[in-house]
């Protein structure tokens, strides 16, 4: 039913129609991009993800003047999502000055998630580690690997030059690795997450798609 969009054609048209009052177009746009936006928030604000996803879509439809034609719609959308996230965190911080997305991590702000983020241990470990690196690093990695945005799109979302994104991705991965190592994981999990993972992932690819939710 809800395919992740592959072709971006028509996103801006749908947005324009929605802005003109076409709820069908709005609904189509929301359905098309919902999962990416939801994922964006899910590992940063936990239960507030639904609310922030909604705010993101609403901000999208309201902020027509900020649409820049040279951007892809998704870069535009995630840029808004990042703004919403900043607003949210600023509102939830004791001191607004402290929030620096290039330095502060989700874990710094929110601590441990209330409930497990994932069923599989190594997935949980990665999600936790992502929360422990600076938010902009987390965003860069997630958008790049999960949403498959290009480096220039990520640069637009983070509002930094392309070269900065490239070096950030490298640093982000290093920090992610350090976080994984620092987490007191059972040895087996750490091993599999850090090094065996490659081999493991390859064998899974060879077999075809792994079954979902198939954790022990």
């Amino acid at each position: 039913m809800l395919e992740r969009p592959t072709a971006m054609d028509g996103d801006f048209e749908l947005l324009t129609a929605w802005q003109a009052g076409d709820d069908e177009a709005g609904d189509a746009l929301v359905r098309r991009h919902f999962w990416g936006v939801y994922r964006f928030f899910r590992n940063k604000v936990d239960e507030a993800a639904e609310d922030l996803a909604q705010r993101t879509f609403l901000a999208c439809v309201e902020a027509r003047d900020r649409v820049r034609a040279e951007l892809s719609f998704r870069a535009y959308l995630f840029g808004i999502a990042r703004n919403q996230l900043s607003l949210y965190f600023r509102g939830h911080q004791r001191s607004a000055q402290l929030f620096r997305p290039a330095e502060t991590s989700v874990a710094d702000i929110r601590g441990q998630p209330d409930r497990p983020l994932a069923d599989r241990q190594e997935q949980q470990a990665l999600l936790l580690a992502l929360r422990r690196i600076p938010i902009d690093f987390q965003i860069a990695l997630e958008l790049y690997y999960w949403e498959e945005l290009s480096v220039s799109e990520v640069a637009a979302v983070l509002d930094v030059p392309t070269g900065t994104v490239k070096s950030r991705l490298g640093r982000a991965r290093r920090q992610l690795r350090e976080q994984l190592e620092a987490m007191a994981l059972p040895n087996a999990t750490l091993e599999s997450t850090l090094s065996d993972l490659e081999q493991w992932a390859r064998s899974l690819r060879e077999l075809g798609r792994p079954r979902e939710n198939s954790s022990s």
């Binding site: 809800l2 999962w35 994922r39 899910r42 590992n43 983020l117 994932a118 190594e122 997935q123 990665l126 999600l127 992502l130 990695l141 690997y145 999960w146 991965r173 992610l176 690795r177 997450t193 850090l194 090094s195 993972l197 490659e198 992932a201 390859r202 979902e212 939710n213």
Partner: peptide, 13 residues
């Protein structure tokens, strides 16, 4: 390998 691990960690619908 980290890239693979990261991709795999993408939350499911």
């Amino acid at each position: 390998s980290h890239g693979e691990a990261l991709r795999r960690a993408r939350p499911h619908e």
